[in-house]
Design a protein around this nucleic acid. Structure first.
Length: 274
DNA sequence: CGCCAGGTGCGAA
DNA sequence: TTCGCACCTGGC
């Protein structure tokens, strides 16, 4: 078990806001299927407590996953000094963090997200994991890790269709066949434009999905996944409707933290609508 | 039933 | 370059 100070970390929002597809809420605890292990998080007034099916490097894994070492207060200050109209939104989002997810899982999950809803996305990822992911028993319950690339490469298109991927099955099949682990890691060595272009060279990955992959899988804060929620926010707040205009505005104003601001917008817009 | 969901890739203008 | 539309699937 490892524990860490809560400070102002909004764990619930961070887990449930849509950036994580494989989590389970149980009576006062959160279960997340994270790369090679299951983690369970509980809390009291002061601390979060993390239990896991695999305690190796647990502290480092959790720190990296939640980006606990990132100084959001200082980033927020920088953002506010550029655009005071963000004040309300940032106040709303204090303690909200961008997740740093396993890369392959992030890529596949967001490929599935195209013109799809969250429930279907989760369903597909779970079906895939159950079919060829490693089974882990944790606290007497069974979970399935997201499959390794090696396992995924053995799947046929028919297999993939059985995961209810619909028209995305063929794109995902082609991606799996073409990609290697080296390629996936090599994206780290590219600048943001190169990385986006590389990801978008795969059919089924457009700008929005490529941006999500870089934001949640590579922790690049300088991309801006403009989706329906962000469009609503930008339209309501600044009267900007066109995606291109939103992109220019965001890039100009928020620069290397565009992705974080976009995520704040997504988060606050989505919360209000609920 | 018909419509929509955290988009994308086509062909047509 | 931009624009409009079809697209698997499951839930309402």
């Amino acid at each position: 078990m490892v524990k860490f100070n809560k400070n102002n970390f909004k764990l619930y929002d961070t887990i449930t806001c849509g950036q994580i597809f494989r989590f389970i809420l149980e009576n006062n605890s959160y279960i997340i299927i994270l790369e090679d292990r299951i983690i369970k998080i509980t809390e009291d007034d002061k601390y979060f407590y993390v239990y896991s099916s695999n305690e190796n490097n647990l502290k480092e894994v959790v720190e990296s996953y939640f980006g606990l070492n990132i100084d959001y207060d200082s980033i927020n200050k920088t953002l506010l000094s550029n655009d005071i109209t963000l004040k309300n939104m940032i106040d709303n989002c204090i303690g909200f963090k961008i997740i740093n997810s396993p890369k392959l899982e992030t890529i596949i999950s967001y490929m599935i997200s195209a013109n799809n809803n969250v429930r279907n996305i989760q369903n597909s990822v779970n079906l895939m994991s159950k079919y060829c992911g490693k089974k882990i028993v944790f606290e007497n319950k069974e979970y399935y890790l997201f499959p390794t690339l090696e396992k995924l490469k053995k799947l046929s298109i028919e297999n993939l269709r059985s995961f209810k991927l619909g028209f995305r099955a063929e794109n995902i099949y082609n991606f799996i066949q073409r990609i290697t682990l080296t390629d996936i890691n090599n994206i780290n060595n590219m600048n943001t434009k190169e990385a986006l272009d590389y990801l978008m060279s795969f059919k089924g990955i457009g700008l929005k999905i490529a941006s999500c992959i870089l934001l949640f899988g590579y922790h690049r804060f300088d991309v801006f996944p403009i989706d329906t929620w962000v469009k609503k926010y930008m339209s309501d707040t600044y009267g900007l409707k066109d995606t291109k205009k939103i992109e220019e505005f965001t890039k100009e104003k928020y620069k290397e933290y565009s992705g974080l601001v976009i995520q704040y917008m997504f988060h606050s817009k989505r919360n209000k609508e609920k």
